[in-house]
Simulated assay, not measured.
Amino acid sequence: MTPQAVLDHYDQGLLWPADRPLPIAADVDAAYQQALALRALRTARGERPVGYKIGFTNRTIWPRYEVYAPIWGTVWHTTLARSSGGTGEVSLDRLCQPRLEPEIVFGIAATPPRDATLEELFGCIAWLAPGFEIVQSHLPGWKFTAADTVADGGLHARLLIGRETPVGRFATSAHALDELLGRARVRLYRGDELIEEGKGVNVLDGPLHALHHFNQELQRCPGAPALMPGDVVTTGTWTDAWPLEPGQSWRAEFDAPFDSLGITLR
């Protein structure tokens, strides 16, 4: 599948036809080059990259999807929404098999140095916020290889970010923030029904570790842009990814001091 073909499916919200040859790319490295070509196509038509998503950081769901390492993809100004009031509304129009993930999102204040330590990375963080990423797959039944997911835009569809709180209000060191995030929990509700509970330690031992891993992988990927001031990075779901339908309302209640976030789908 060519990058233009992937983009066409993004625009139309269509499954990739089952009779087309798979995998999308020979391996994950080749898939990232396809993903960067897709990024160039989207940029050329006027979309603006605003950050990144990290996927498959939650080791508890690796066997379910048969993907056993993290991936990453681009977040766009056309896929990002913000809500400072604790809830937001997002359209599922032209999304393909959408699912919901509760996450913690980082705002980047400075480009991290090469092979940054956790402490150096902490110094490059501006804020943290609760987030809902809506992911999608253009492959039937959410059956894919790791290379497929990378070439398929990292499965990213939409990102809703809640209130952005300066990192200094949570912790003054990487160690303290790591411990706080690692022991935090989230309760995910659909309407008033508790669907699943998750914890920060699920995502590569904590969201700060997920960010650290991603920064290293980004710096090692040929042709990939560096993290920049103002970028957002969503660090992976604390629960499984749950199928969505228009009209639903969901809520993620994170442990204090992290904010909770609600989303209504249309």
Rank of each mutant, 00 (worst) to 15 (best):
1 M>W: 00
6 V>C: 08
11 D>V: 05
15 L>R: 06
16 W>D: 00
21 P>K: 04
27 D>F: 12
34 Q>C: 10
35 A>Q: 15
42 R>I: 07
45 R>Y: 09
50 V>T: 10
57 T>H: 00
57 T>Q: 04
61 I>K: 12
61 I>V: 14
64 R>Y: 10
66 E>P: 08
70 P>W: 01
73 G>K: 03
76 W>S: 10
76 W>Y: 13
78 T>R: 14
79 T>H: 07
80 L>W: 02
82 R>A: 11
83 S>C: 13
83 S>G: 06
87 T>Y: 05
92 L>R: 01
93 D>V: 04
95 L>E: 02
102 P>K: 03
104 I>Y: 00
105 V>W: 05
109 A>D: 09
113 P>I: 09
117 T>W: 04
118 L>A: 15
118 L>T: 06
118 L>P: 10
119 E>Y: 11
120 E>I: 09
125 I>H: 02
125 I>Q: 00
127 W>A: 10
129 A>N: 04
129 A>I: 03
131 G>T: 00
141 G>V: 10
145 T>G: 03
145 T>I: 03
145 T>K: 04
145 T>Y: 07
156 H>D: 09
158 R>G: 06
159 L>P: 05
160 L>E: 01
162 G>T: 06
169 R>I: 03
170 F>L: 14
171 A>E: 06
174 A>N: 11
178 D>E: 12
178 D>Q: 15
181 L>P: 04
181 L>N: 09
182 G>T: 13
185 R>K: 13
187 R>T: 12
188 L>W: 03
196 E>K: 12
198 G>L: 00
207 P>Q: 05
211 L>S: 09
212 H>M: 07
214 F>L: 15
221 C>Y: 00
223 G>S: 08
224 A>Q: 03
228 M>D: 02
229 P>N: 08
235 T>W: 02
237 T>F: 03
238 W>S: 06
239 T>E: 00
239 T>D: 03
241 A>D: 04
243 P>C: 10
244 L>E: 04
248 Q>D: 14
249 S>L: 07
257 P>V: 07
265 L>A: 01
266 R>S: 11
